[in-house]
Structure formats: C-alpha cells, structure tokens
Computed example of a mutant assay.
Amino acid sequence: MRIPPFYRHPVWQRFLAGAAVGGCISWLVFLFMFGTIQQKNSTIIERQAIRINELSGHIQILEEDKQKLNEENEKMLTIQEIDVKIHNFERYGINDRLGIYKAEESVGEDLRSLIAEDLTTVYKNKEIIKKTVENKRLTINGKQYRLVVKELYFYTTISLVLELKLAD
C-alpha cells in the first residue's frame, strides 16, 4: 500500500498544519484551565484542613472542660436519703409489720447524721456504719434481736439490707 501524495497539495498541507497548531493551542488551553481549577481546589482543601485542625482543638478543649465538670459533680455528690430493709423476720415468727417498720426507722434515725454528707466520705467510713448497725439491739415482741448487714449500697441513697438474728 502506498500513502496518498497529499503532501503535494497545499490545501491539505494547510489543513494538517492547522490541525496540528489547533491541537497544540487546545492542549495549552486545557492545561491552563485544569491548572487553575486544581489550584482553586488545593486552596479550598488547605483552608478546610486548617479549619478542621482548629475545630479539633476546640473539641479537645470542650471535652477536657466536660471531664473536669463531671469530676467536680462527682465530688459534690451527697447522701440524700437512707433506705433500710429488714429481711427474714418471718423466720422468727414476727408478724408485727409495725414492729419491723419501727425497727427500720430506728436504724434509719441512727444513720440520719449521714444525710447531706459527701459520698466519698461516707463510703470511706462504711465499716463504721456496718459496726454501728450490727451493734444495735432491737426489742420486738419482747425478744432481743441483733442486726447483720447483708448488703450495703452507696449512691445518693444509702441502701441497707439487714437480717435479724437472736441476741445472745
């Protein structure tokens, strides 16, 4: 096969030269437009990265402040009430609900001084609270009973679960 001899015709020479020059010019226009768009995008990305770093710093500061406030609030927790429950009174044939209620109130009165105290202070003295309750003697229906602490929970409410035992 043979290439047609278009290189000898000036019309075809002008057309091919124009296509080559047009291709070069269009390539330069494309590179210019692409470069300006990329430059704009890169400046936007830089600004966003700076903004993200600033906001991350603000978030970290806010989280530290929140943590400090939570720690301060935990330190400020105080005892609001005392809940006393006596179990196994049926074992000794005590059907006097009023007597059990009075015994629970008596124990609650002994511990009333703990109300409005700091939770950590009360928790540190839990053994003293236990001994105070266990050394108490109750008289129900003419019999002497002592209390044994089975469960002791601390939060804004002190919850005591007690058992009755016959006093020696």
Rank of each mutant, 00 (worst) to 15 (best):
I3V: 06
I50K: 10
T132K: 05
E54S: 12
I140C: 08
E104N: 00
T36R: 08
E127N: 10
V161D: 14
A19H: 01
I50N: 07
E72D: 08
R51T: 02
F89I: 04
L98A: 04
R8K: 10
K40L: 01
D168F: 04
D168R: 04
L62A: 12
K150C: 01
H9D: 11
Q13M: 03
I25A: 14
A103L: 01
E63N: 11
R2G: 02
D83T: 06
N125H: 09
E104Q: 12
I158L: 03
I94R: 00
K165L: 00
Y7V: 03
E163P: 08
L77T: 10
I79D: 00
D83E: 07
R97P: 04
L152T: 05
T121N: 09
I129A: 10
L160P: 12
P5G: 07
E54Q: 14
Y123W: 15
E46V: 03
E163Y: 13
S42H: 10
V133L: 02
E90S: 11
Q13Y: 02
E151F: 03
I45M: 04
Q39T: 14
G18N: 13
G93Q: 00
L31G: 15
I86M: 06
K165T: 03
D110S: 13
W12N: 09
R137G: 07
L55D: 04
K40T: 09
I79E: 01
Y92P: 00
D96N: 12
E81M: 06
K68N: 13
V29T: 01
R14Q: 02
E109L: 03
L164Q: 10
K130S: 13
K102C: 10
S42A: 14
N53H: 04
R51F: 00
E64N: 15
P5M: 06
R91G: 11
G35I: 06
I79W: 00
I52T: 07
L162R: 03
G35H: 14
K165W: 12
R47I: 03
A20L: 03
G35Y: 09
N88W: 01
G18E: 14
H9E: 15
I59G: 01
F15W: 12
N53K: 14
Y155M: 07
K126A: 04
K130F: 06
E109W: 01
F32E: 12
V133E: 09
N141A: 08
F6A: 02
L114C: 00
N53Y: 09
V161H: 14
G93H: 00
E163D: 11
M1S: 02
H9L: 13
N125F: 02
K136Q: 07
M76V: 04
G99P: 11
V21S: 08
K124F: 00
A17Q: 01
S113L: 05
V29Y: 05
R2V: 04
Q67C: 11
R8A: 08
K126I: 01
Q39W: 12
R47Y: 11
V29H: 11
W12E: 05
V161E: 15
T78K: 12
I25E: 05
S159C: 07
T139V: 15
D83Q: 10
V84M: 01
E54K: 02
F32Y: 11
Q38E: 12
